[in-house]
């Protein structure tokens, strides 16, 4: 793939973040010497167990925290500057929003903060709310939303000013499989629109399908980074899937392989993944919850 823009969407260099825990100077190192480049147009997964520094990294990218050492640039602009956030949308971890606003009032509010022109604002608000599938609930107070709906209104608010980079912190945490599959679909749509997406998760399987590249953090340190295909495929093995093979023929096949110097390592019943089974069995609810 070629990237039209040589400036990476996110460029983190030698980043270390310490939190001081008390006045006696005891510090906690949340991120240690992290260097990471995220090219434009990719879906990038930042993985790691709880407390490994994913959210801290994201907050530094957004200028909400200042790095202790190192620097971070967004589209080439240092993230301590306000203008580095012009092209960024952010969905925080376990978001809560202004409970006293309705969904569309909320998105409208963020749209105005981001300087969406007044003429286009109403249309744009309707557009993104529709896009995340919340039209039916747009006029309900955010305080009455379910967890999945909060994530989706959060996504709408992150997208209202049509940013080039979207940062999602655990967008599927606490959301049921149907809801998280829908969020995955939305992320893939964003990718098809040419957006850059940075997504964090501690559930590796869930985002394996949507990421181009992943980095894995552990206790603040980068332990692995690479393209998903390369990381998960085992290059020196193949699997064959055959319709019901009788034992006799299986023995024959084993012999055929052995004659050519190959071993048949395993014979298994292929299994569907539990989440895929679940998704194929349960009905997808009306978007935005049932309205009665």
């Amino acid at each position: 793939m070629t990237h039209p823009n040589p400036v990476p969407a996110i460029e983190i260099t030698g980043l270390t973040k310490d939190f001081s825990l008390n006045l006696r100077g005891i510090k906690l190192r949340a991120v240690e010497n992290l260097t990471l480049n995220i090219p434009e147009g990719q879906v990038f997964g930042l993985l790691g167990p709880n407390g490994s520094g994913k959210s801290t990294t994201i907050k530094i990218i957004l200028g909400l925290l200042e790095p202790t050492v190192g620097e971070c640039k967004v589209f080439g602009v240092s993230s301590v500057r306000v203008d580095s956030r012009l092209n960024v949308g952010y969905l925080p971890e376990a978001p809560y929003f202004y409970r006293y606003l309705s969904g569309s009032e909320l998105v409208r509010f963020y749209g105005r903060i981001c300087g969406v022109p007044r003429k286009r604002l109403d249309e744009r608000v309707r557009e993104v709310i529709d896009w995340v599938g919340l039209s039916a609930a747009a006029h309900r107070r955010v305080g009455t939303y379910s967890k999945g709906m909060l994530q989706r209104i959060g996504l709408a608010q992150a997208l209202v000013h049509d940013p080039r980079l979207i940062i999602l912190d655990e967008p599927t945490a606490g959301v049921d499989p149907v809801g998280s599959a829908e969020i995955s679909e939305l992320i893939l749509k964003l990718k098809n629109q040419g957006k850059t997406v940075l997504i964090t998760s501690h559930l590796l399987a869930q985002i394996e399908d949507i990421c181009d590249r992943v980095a894995i953090l552990d206790r603040g340190k980068l332990i692995l980074e690479g393209a998903v295909n390369e990381l998960v495929s085992m290059q020196n093995r193949q699997s064959l899937i055959v319709d019901s093979l009788p034992p006799a023929e299986l023995e024959e096949l084993r012999g055929w392989l052995a004659a050519r110097g190959h071993a048949l390592t395993a014979v298994e019943q292929p299994r569907t993944r539990l989440d895929q089974l679940f998704l194929s069995k349960v009905s997808r609810p009306q978007k935005g919850g049932e309205v009665k």
Binding site: K59, L62, L64, F97, Y98, C114
Partner: peptide
């Protein structure tokens, strides 16, 4: 406490 400050300060605002 509702972490709305995070969302708003992540926008281009001083």
């Amino acid at each position: 406490e509702n972490r709305t400050a995070l969302t708003i300060l992540a926008k281009p605002i001083w």
